[in-house]
């Protein structure tokens, strides 16, 4: 039985798609057959971040409408053969999605795949609701600033009440906090909320902290999930995160200020 993970946040631009691409690649590289679905109908980005935008023939909405089979729409990643992407439609909008259609596709994918990652759009409307409806686990991506924290809190409320598990009184969705774009310098200056602050406000299990990193932009420009950039802090943080999700115990890195030696102070660069 597949494990369905929704990557959601409420707030836009916090790192959901970056996370979906990185985590999907991370799980696939560990040998688990993983499918990642882009639920942002009309504003698709997942295919860009994974680097398969030139191979999109059929999309999610085509499959829901029966215009193509799931196999025709799924795109296999060239770097890792356990990773498959189901891109969103760019020409339609979220009204093309239906609960039954989504359920059917997830059901079909569950037969073959170990993990199904649903990359949610921002907001709390239909796209976001359908992305989280069938989830078993939720990665709530939050930036360490007040509006993102409030929106994540709102999304947690929706996960607890409007998901299929909530409606059928099943065991609730397992919620994980993912703090992204974290900058220890700014936390020290008091400009940014700390890990403890965010946990206090949200009271949620912390799965990982992803530091602010220039490599994220480079990764999306080149269509390579950032987890494959092993030199970058963000890439390593995602690797830690995937390991923690799979049960490994890894300490949090990149949350404390780096101790810069003389050379570090002379050359201000950081990965």
């Amino acid at each position: 039985m597949a494990r369905i993970i929704v990557v959601t946040s409420g707030k836009g631009g916090v790192g959901k798609t970056t996370t979906s691409a990185a985590v999907a690649m991370g799980l696939a590289k560990k040998g688990h057959k993983t499918a990642v679905i882009d639920f942002d109908v009309g504003l698709r980005n997942l295919d860009l971040l994974i680097g398969c935008e030139r191979r999109v023939v059929y999309d999610f909405v085509n499959v829901i409408n029966g215009e193509a089979s799931l196999n025709q729409a799924l795109i296999r990643d060239k770097r890792c053969n356990q990773l498959y992407i189901l891109p969103a439609s760019q020409t339609r909008d979220k009204d093309a999605l239906t609960k039954e259609g989504v359920g059917k596709i997830i059901g079909e994918l569950s037969k073959e795949f170990k993990y199904i990652i649903c990359d949610s759009p921002a907001g709390i409307e239909k796209g976001a609701n359908l992305a989280m409806y069938y989830a078993d686990d939720a990665f709530v991506v939050t930036n360490p600033e007040v509006s993102s924290v409030r929106d994540s809190d709102r999304m947690l409320g929706i996960l607890a009440s409007k998901s299929r598990r909530a409606e059928h009184n099943m065991e609730p969705i397992r919620e994980y906090l993912l703090l992204s774009r974290y900058s220890p310098d700014r936390v020290k200056l008091g400009e940014m909320l700390s890990v403890e602050d965010v946990q206090e406000i949200l009271s949620l299990h912390l799965l990982g902290v992803i530091p602010e990193s220039k490599s994220v932009l480079n990764a999306s420009n080149s269509g390579v999930p950032v987890i494959l950039d092993e030199k970058s802090n963000a890439g390593q943080a995602y690797a830690d995160l995937v390991a923690r999700y799979l049960g490994e115990d890894r300490p949090l890195r990149f949350v404390d200020l780096e101790k810069k030696g003389i050379l570090g102070k002379l050359f201000r660069s950081r990965a």
């Binding site: 409030r150 709102r154 929706i158 607890a160």
Partner: peptide, 8 residues
């Protein structure tokens, strides 16, 4: 006994 979230 669970946290009451924003909007609830």
């Amino acid at each position: 006994s669970h946290p009451i979230r924003s909007g609830q």
